[in-house]
Design a protein around this nucleic acid. Structure first.
Length: 219
DNA sequence: GCGACAG
DNA sequence: ATCTTGTCGC
């Protein structure tokens, strides 16, 4: 698939933040509610700055893998909370461009709207691709939330400065919640629904699990 | 002012 | 993210 690349790459924190502020206005918070091809994205680091980005596309109904690609590269930015996306973006974009099919939804490991400037990795990838995108984080980041009930499907809002920016979602009974937020062209209700529907047996959605496995064990 | 801070 | 042993549970 084709991915828009429209930046001078940032050389420091101020430039990276300016890019986020500039692209943020393109984020759309509504979109489709069903998806035919769902892509999971993840990156694995191998010491130093080398990394492997993986994208696995699943059938939206059966969750069966349809296509998988990897791209090797190097972390493109130091790790700074809030600028995490700049580390992985080039390799993830490269992997997406190697895809023969075009997914309907990108499921990213990390955050989207629930970010210090409202523009996490999921928003960034969504805007660059033009595709619906959502983030699923494994640990809390921005905002506060109550602990959701123990049942699969229970959720509580993540609130920051008076606004709901995501949800803590219990994807399996008695298992730690995940943190869902909108990336691009998706509502919070739909993102929550997809996070749940894409999680068959474990804590994390299948697309992310497949991508994580592929990034760690490239064929 | 200080600490905390997606992966 | 990654460095690691043991332990619990299916």
């Amino acid at each position: 698939m084709h991915v828009e690349r429209l930046h001078p790459w940032p050389t420091g924190v101020a430039e990276a933040e300016a890019i986020q502020d500039r692209l943020r206005v393109h984020v759309e918070l509504t979109g489709p509610t069903t998806f035919t091809l769902v892509a999971g994205l993840d990156v694995h680091y191998h010491g130093d700055d080398s990394l492997t980005a993986a994208v696995v596309v699943l059938d939206g109904d059966t969750l069966a893998p349809v296509e998988q690609v990897v791209a090797h590269g190097r972390a493109a930015f130091p790790y700074v909370p809030g600028l995490f996306a700049f580390r992985e973006l080039p390799a993830l974009v490269e992997a997406l461009e190697r895809l023969a099919v075009t997914p309907d939804l990108l499921v990213c490991d990390g955050y989207g709207l629930a970010h210090p400037r409202g523009f996490g990795l999921a928003c960034h990838l969504g805007v660059l691709t033009g595709l619906p995108a959502m983030g699923v984080g494994k640990t809390p980041f921005i905002g506060t939330h109550e602990t959701p009930g123990p049942e699969r499907g229970a959720w509580t809002p993540i609130v920051h400065e008076g606004a709901t920016i995501g949800r803590a979602l219990r994807t399996q009974r008695g298992v730690k919640p995940v943190y869902v937020s909108q990336g691009h062209r998706i509502s919070l209700d739909t993102a929550t629904d997809q996070a749940l529907r894409l999680t068959s047996r474990y804590r994390l959605p299948d697309p992310i699990r497949h991508a994580d496995h592929l990034a760690r064990h490239p064929s």
